[in-house]
Design a protein around this nucleic acid. Structure first.
Lengths: 281, 281
DNA sequence: AAGAAAGTATCGCATTGTGATACATAGTTT
DNA sequence: AAACTATGTATCACAATGCGATACTTTCTT
């Protein structure tokens, strides 16, 4: 009695693109509940609002009204969403923070890097970040905030397209080339600022230079008035597992003094983390 | 060798204690999947290990083998768990960090507090935290790490029983008394260190003093060699919504210089956040 | 007051998750 | 190495559970 209801918009809640997980057991309800949670992130970027009503959740998650209601209420019961009794709108609940802790506590790299990053942040009183690759994004996992930056750029968990941010460039550069190519191929190469490079050949040249130099400086490619530096954290075999990232905001920082001061700091910090890594294993 | 997992500990996956959510739609599978994720937090504290095998997940989550497998694999497919192909053990996945970001981006209090906390951390080069109450726990939501502390105490998302930590004391003190009593009643009053107070009357006296003074100093009640200070962030109506917390570690900090320096800093920082709060609304 | 839109509740059906069982593989012990 | 144990993986018939169309209620707009 199935009339093949493969709606194109949100065809499948199982996974973005099944690599080789076919046949693995999968509970659809779980996938849907995370669609609801993800809806809030989309709501923040697309609708610029924190609280979502049920029908907004429907649109953003691709679920029908009944399902949206069922999962939203389930998540409220579990504490991962809160519901405003007045407006009847939902918002992310504080319990979500638990999973960050769960992940971070067990994250050896972050544990090793943290004290080194803190020290580095004091040298020029700058923000210092640790960045890791996930899919086509670079995710900030540890951030030591120092200067006044915008709130969103001080939070761990922020994602930036790998191809257009210095941490991404530097990680991709220190990876097997075929894997890096695959990431670029899967990336949505669109300009973020007017300085963003989107040509594969140019990007690859940039990566080659980053590999040669051992660092990369991005001049307003992902954010204007921001010259950011990144250096790779390397495993023993030379593969990058992360990047140390130091943003330099205008007017205090420009291409010249970034090269003179922040680049050596980033490189040195990344090297220290790499060294501690190999010792720890 | 563990014998017979405490079956009674996981009677129901719906909710810890149904307050008035009876009749609300609830999807059991979703509850179970979060049981699996929570298992990893328990695994960290109880087993002191990051990676969990399937049978460990069974014990820690209270699910049977089939269910544990189904949900674990589902979470791997979704990216919230990773599976080591060699050991066949599971570990928290980096995608978990997304939910922290989702929560924090929309968290007005944190947004307002962040720059103020950063400034405060520079005064004596100390860690400065923002703490909020959830249930019977105080949760650290924003942490500005400075000094070398242990890794676990630098991470946002850490939970501490409210009754025995200065941020908890100070928040409970600036709350309607019946609500505070309810929290104490629900708390598991057990000693964390030899200095932990566990007598309700003593705790209430301590809260009364915190209310009178507008701050609280905890002397090794939740951690030895740690004299920590907390001051309440107050809403217009006088109710505490959070606490500014500044830990002081021996030997640098002792009761005397904490009172002289950190207490005024915490109080002033909390006041500034409170002021900004009222302005923002 | 009428209308629209958003949120909530209901309920029979069949899809989906369930979990006992059996099989396969890794890790120990003899 | 074989025998044994523990742990991980696959299978499958059953029915409980989630599904979603529908109807009802409330809130906001016109």
């Amino acid at each position: 009695m199935l009339d093949l209801p493969d709606d194109d918009a949100h065809p499948d809640f199982s996974t973005e693109a099944d690599p080789d997980r076919r046949g693995k057991p999968f509970v659809a309800s779980v996938g849907k509940c995370f669609q609801v949670l993800k809806a809030f992130r989309r709501g923040q970027t697309e609708l610029r609002q924190r609280d979502l009503g049920l029908s907004e959740i429907c649109k953003l998650s691709g679920l029908d009204k009944s399902a949206a209601q069922r999962f939203s209420e389930t998540l409220v019961t579990l504490g991962y969403l809160e519901k405003d009794p007045g407006t009847r709108r939902y918002r992310p609940g504080i319990a979500l923070i638990d999973f960050y802790y769960t992940f971070m506590v067990s994250h050896r790299l972050a544990q090793i890097a943290m004290p080194i990053l803190i020290e580095a942040s004091k040298v020029y009183d700058t923000t210092v970040n640790l960045c890791e690759l996930e899919g086509t994004d670079a995710i900030y996992t540890v951030r030591i905030p120092q200067a006044k930056a915008s709130y969103g750029t001080m939070l761990a968990g922020r994602r930036v397209p790998a191809f257009c941010a210095s941490p991404g460039t530097v990680i991709l550069a220190h990876m097997p080339e075929d894997e890096a190519d695959a990431v670029l191929a899967a990336s949505d190469l669109r300009k973020i600022t007017e300085y963003t490079l989107t040509d594969i050949a140019e990007l690859k040249a940039q990566m080659a230079e980053a590999r040669r130099l051992g660092y990369h400086v991005s001049d307003q490619q992902s954010q204007i008035h921001n010259v950011s530096t990144a250096a790779p954290v390397l495993r023993m075999d030379g593969r990058a597992v992360a990047a140390v990232h130091i943003p330099g905001y205008a007017p205090q920082w420009n291409l010249d003094n970034v090269h003179e001061k922040l680049v050596p700091l980033a490189v040195e910090t990344a090297r220290r983390i790499s060294d501690s890594l190999t010792e720890a294993l």
